[in-house]
Design a protein around this nucleic acid. Structure first.
Lengths: 145, 145
DNA sequence: ATTTCATAGTTGGTGTAACAACTATTCATG
DNA sequence: CATGAATAGTTGTTACACCAACTATGAAAT
């Protein structure tokens, strides 16, 4: 029996992800911050001065994406980049005063966003959901070895 | 208490989606077919001659994306485009012999992909997972009104 | 110390997504 | 049937995601 597109769980996940991204994109628009750029900022608000490589690992993103997003954030005046003294290859990202100030406005929005997302979902349900997500991730990760 | 990035369910969904996309991308590479292009092909293998607008609705994608992907698929020789006789605005997509032949090879891979994704997950667990996904989608959809 | 390998980052290219502005056709209404 | 609204598609722009190929720097090994 042939599957229709709607039978593929991967497609449902993909479409949900697009909904989520679209939603948060709208929320962040007024701050001139794109969703993935915001993730870098979230890391820096937590710990300033991370290298691009550290950010790349934490966000599980390609280093090329981080480089371009960092360049973009620098252009917007939220961060500046400076070569690391110990290792001249590495570049550390530091918040500008503007970037620091932005956190006070954006962090509450991020937390409120999460509240909206999980509304009407019990803790138990969410935990089970995350378990299934992890199973799915692991099922396809085996390719990478 | 401040959330770390890993506490955001949306980020977990996003990263799982990226894993899935990366996996299927690898599987389809040898056929010169990108993941989202494949979705259009899946629809056409099911029912040939759909308009771009119909495809756009079925895939819940922006019409601009469909237009460009269709143009791409035409360039690869898998489909051809032809203005609809009843409505000169609309463009129908038709499989070429090459495109038809591709289905015999790719459809089994798509179904095998789904098998891999849901491996070790019970039907009950999957149903619950989908319910939660829908809840999450609905929670952010309210913005659109 | 020199060669070699590994690591951090950049650049170029392709493939999605989403939005705005545009053309061309069709429909709806007076 | 003429005008305006709606619809189908295209083009341009921005932001990711990923790959390959590149530079620069650092580390390891003989």
């Amino acid at each position: 029996m042939r599957l229709t597109l709607q039978d593929y769980i991967s497609i449902k996940i993909h479409q949900t992800d697009l909904h989520l991204t679209g939603y948060i994109k709208g929320k962040l628009e007024e701050f001139n911050l794109a969703p993935e750029q915001n993730l870098i900022m979230m890391l820096l608000w937590e710990k300033d001065g991370l290298t691009q490589n550290q950010i790349s690992q934490k966000l599980q993103k390609d280093k090329t994406n981080i480089a371009r997003m960092a360049s973009n954030l620098e252009g917007k005046g939220f961060i500046y980049r400076s070569h690391c003294d110990n290792d001249r290859r590495a570049i550390r990202l530091y918040l500008t005063p503007n970037g620091k100030a932005l956190g006070d406005k954006v962090i509450p929005i991020a937390e409120e966003f999460n509240d909206v997302v999980v509304k009407g979902i019990t803790v138990k349900e969410l935990v089970q959901f995350e378990k299934t997500l992890i199973k799915i991730s692991k099922n396809v990760d085996c390719l990478l070895k």
